[in-house]
């Protein structure tokens, strides 16, 4: 919450992205370009801007999330999130700080370059937090037909499944707020009621349990 949510998200990111965006704009300026996108996003109504921003950010995150599962050194960091064996709201914000760095780098800098500032994020950010909290909670919620649009705990528990068929070994149900990407790109997987499935990953029994060992484990594994 303090580092991942506040200190990094806005401190380090703020400084880094201010510099990156400035450099980028100067680079574009060399060619006499002052806006990257054809549509002037800033001229659209505020709610439209927020919706576009939400959808683009979620799609970027979905791709980053797939990468965290696919690239082996990144998976070592993402395992900290997957070491939950019983789902609950706090699992949502349980992740290694390196994930924050990977996500924010991949997400905010491109968004800032498209012309989105960090103002007026409150509602968007809060909706994402609400959906994310519910996804990890011990709740039987699917939102009816909206399950094809919104991620939900019944779908997300399969993302945390310990045992998956070998052709799905790089993971399933990568959605964060939106589940639509998984349905569009065929990474959805809800074979049965997941209420009582085992969670975690292979050999989780041997994964350390202490706080510092969670923080240090990925560095040991990846070297």
């Amino acid at each position: 919450m303090f580092f991942n949510f506040f200190l990094f998200s806005l401190v380090a990111y703020n400084a880094l992205s201010n510099v990156a965006v400035d450099l980028f704009n100067q680079f574009l300026g060399l060619f006499g370009i002052n806006n990257l996108v054809a549509i002037q996003l800033g001229s659209l109504p505020k709610w439209t801007q927020l919706m576009i921003m939400f959808v683009i950010a979620d799609f970027i995150q979905w791709n980053v999330h797939r990468m965290l599962h696919r690239v082996s050194w990144m998976w070592e960091f993402h395992k900290v999130h997957h070491s939950v064996e019983q789902m609950g709201f706090a699992a949502h914000l349980r992740f290694h700080f390196m994930e924050t760095i990977i996500y924010k780098t991949c997400q905010y800098i491109p968004l800032a370059m498209l012309g989105f500032g960090i103002q007026d994020f409150f509602i968007i950010h809060f909706i994402a937090l609400l959906i994310g909290h519910i996804n990890h909670a011990n709740l039987n919620v699917t939102y009816g037909p909206f399950k094809y649009l919104l991620n939900n705990p019944v779908m997300h528990i399969w993302h945390h499944a310990k045992d998956l068929p070998s052709e799905k070994r790089y993971g399933v149900n990568f959605g964060l707020s939106l589940s639509i990407w998984d349905y569009l790109f065929k990474t959805d997987y809800i074979p049965s009621d997941g209420r009582d499935i085992a969670l975690g990953f292979e050999k989780i029994e041997k994964y350390p349990t202490g706080f510092w060992s969670h923080i240090l484990a990925p560095f040991k594994k990846s070297t």
């Binding site: 070491s83 909670a137 011990n138 709740l139």
Partner: peptide, 29 residues
């Protein structure tokens, strides 16, 4: 969200203070 989880749990045999909770909460904070 925690309150709703406690009142309407999906898995009834899961403790309110879950397994590996300490690490989860330290990382939450």
């Amino acid at each position: 969200v925690w309150t709703v989880e406690i009142i309407f749990p999906w898995r009834r045999n899961q403790a309110i203070f879950r397994k590996r909770l300490l690490v989860g909460w330290i990382l939450y904070v």
